[in-house]
Amino acid sequence: MKSIVSKKRVFAKFILAMGFFVFVTSLAFGQMKRERTTKVDREIFLAGSIITLPSVTQLPASNLNFTIQHAFGPISDGFKELFGLDASSNIRFGLDYGVTDNISVGIGRSRFDKVYDARVKAKIATFGDAQPTVVSVFGNLGIDSQDNGADLSDRASSHISVLLARSINEKLSIQLSPAWSHFNTAKENIIFGGGIEKEENDLVSLGIATRYALNNQVSILAEYIPVVGSRSDGSEGAFSLGVDLEAGGHVFQIFLTSTQWIAPQYVVSKSRNNFFDGDFGFGFNIHRVF
């Protein structure tokens, strides 16, 4: 009996001591527990385009992005042509606007074939926190505005792509972009030395791209856009290798590329050079968000 009373007394003292301790500390250290309220998605790519491929990176709502994309002639032309800078170059000016955080629309104009384009990109889904996977769809409508007497419908082209991107870790990201490109008119081009090369109305491609972050500001980029199935005569899968530089609200992309085409359906159909044969030129993109 004595032992039970003694145990009860010890227990009561313990409860009393605990109570005082918790009570006093709760008054003395009344700070709330700090808890994160916002999750910031890890960036898979820094800009809306990788080099020529559209990326899953979405423009936030109400943000306006101005883009200059520039691709010069072949470096293999040598010093006489200042390594392609004297050659005819393609340039595209574009404006994109974030309608919501998940949908953006844009317009642009390229010098080659005087192509006006309108595009839309929508993020469909995001999976995972630490290693996010993003699924987006991208559509582009192009109109060739050359003064050649063609009907408007014959000038139209389109490109629809699913963008599947994943951040493998903090440094490495990859993207797959299966796409269907369509031209209302398949052109036939007379080539030097005789013969005709025929372009395709419909092309299927599988864009593959990667980004490797060297630090917060600088990344290495690579992309390859092989055509799967029938392709335009004489065309080659476009390959590009570049560097992403992020500074003060701008993203600068400096690259070597085997294509001078910029609108994605034109890249798929009309790129004629093989990067690994040394047929590539210098190019750059500048993205500025307002």
Partner: peptide
């Protein structure tokens, strides 16, 4: 008393 203080705490 002990339980009261603990609950209050």
């Amino acid at each position: 008393l002990a339980w009261t203080i603990l609950l209050l705490s």
